[in-house]
Design a protein around this nucleic acid. Structure first.
Lengths: 214, 214
DNA sequence: CAATATGCGGAGTGAACGCTCCGCTTCGTT
DNA sequence: AACGAAGCGGAGCGTTCACTCCGCATATTG
């Protein structure tokens, strides 16, 4: 979703073979982490990518940095989906972005457990959440979502679906889709009154902080 | 929830000091795993329990065995809550057991990530699920839950809440409670039609198998 | 083509961690 | 009190895994 290797123009361009290898490493890492989790060793990543371990470490200072880059790309995808949903009519954008987010989560299982963020990812995440909140407001205005739904409820949907995706692995997509449908139905105007108060914004902020902390 | 040390009467009773140490280890493990996750080393568990590493390994053959015992106790608690809910009137037992389960999950964060099961735990789990399904049927009969809700939806609630609990850590209980409320509302008769088909029983079985596999 | 910078591979290093082993201690019994 | 069985501690072992280092290879420039 972003092919230029340079970041903020501060790094020198890579030699052609080096750039290729970098991409192979990212592809290999995405595949292997998805299929077998983040505990797979770096040597396995290098092997699948067809390069040496040294090459991996010349391109990514630590294993965490490699994972971070993958996470950054996932958030990049989230943001793309969110921006597209902004064009949806009649307040339908919220549902669109939620299902889109679920689909991305489902195809990036490997990175699910480590969602903490570097500075760049934090920016993407904040922008993504800002758009989600805007879409929630629109959905309310069109009567698709109940008035007492809160921004924090969207975070709950995210964490819930992430949990279901992590559990259902590659077995089926019906699990997270059904979860999404149930939660959206629970936030629709016709549903019963909710028997629990929403999370406070302070709590949400603290939780997100914890994720970044490690 | 079960103080006798013997299992199936096949093991000899422990010496008094040994039994004490065993309990201290379980308590220490529950605390430490809850607060810092399952990656904490066995030496730390032993240190907190105030015993040597050797003592830990004389009582539990592997670290996994120690975790398994904790998991078994959690499922024991699930089953207790489920049995209590069977006495609830007017089909209210389902909500009771769901919130009870959430509370147990929230107080056992450490074991969340490894829910795979030994034989004994599998029995507890199956019985627990059987009761949940019974309570779902009753809730439907009393018009508290929509007719098109399925057994598998209860598994989704479990996995969702577990995901939220894992994310919200010790910050707040409002997160998982709100999630539960939203999902129950989504399964209430008044809510919108669900925009997704349920998980098949086969898929659920496969997913649960995967959890036991490792 | 020559010259130089950049990149490459993978054996090796150090740290973390699960687990074992054995000399010493404590408990329970007679 | 005396004795054997059971328990205890923790140094140390083996393995795993992230990461480093350096002699060789390749791309790029002029």
């Amino acid at each position: 979703m972003k092919s230029d290797v340079r970041v903020q123009g501060s790094e020198k361009a890579l030699r052609r073979d080096a750039a290729e290898n970098r991409q192979r490493l990212l592809d290999a890492a995405a595949t292997v982490f998805s299929e077998r989790g983040l505990d797979v060793g770096v040597d396995e990543i290098a092997r699948v990518a067809g390069v040496g371990i040294g090459t991996l470490y010349r391109r990514f200072p630590t294993k965490d940095a490699l994972v971070s880059e993958l996470v950054r790309q996932v958030f990049d995808d989230f943001l793309t989906v969110a921006n597209e949903a902004l064009s949806a009519p009649n307040g339908e954008g919220l549902e669109q972005v939620l299902y889109g987010t679920g689909a991305i989560l489902a195809s990036n299982r490997g990175c699910l457990s480590r969602m903490w963020n570097d500075d760049e990812t934090t920016i993407l995440r904040d922008e993504y959440r800002r758009i989600l909140f805007e879409l929630l407001a629109r959905a309310k205005k069109h009567g698709r979502i109940r008035e007492d739904a809160t921004d924090a409820d969207l975070d709950l949907i995210f964490w819930s679906v992430r949990g279901v995706v992590a559990t259902t692995r590659g077995v089926t997509d019906t699990g997270w889709r059904r979860t999404m449908a149930i939660m959206i139905a629970g936030l629709s105007p016709g549903a019963d009154a909710l028997d629990a108060s929403p999370m406070s914004a302070q709590h949400v902020a603290q939780i997100i902080d914890n994720m970044s902390a490690r």
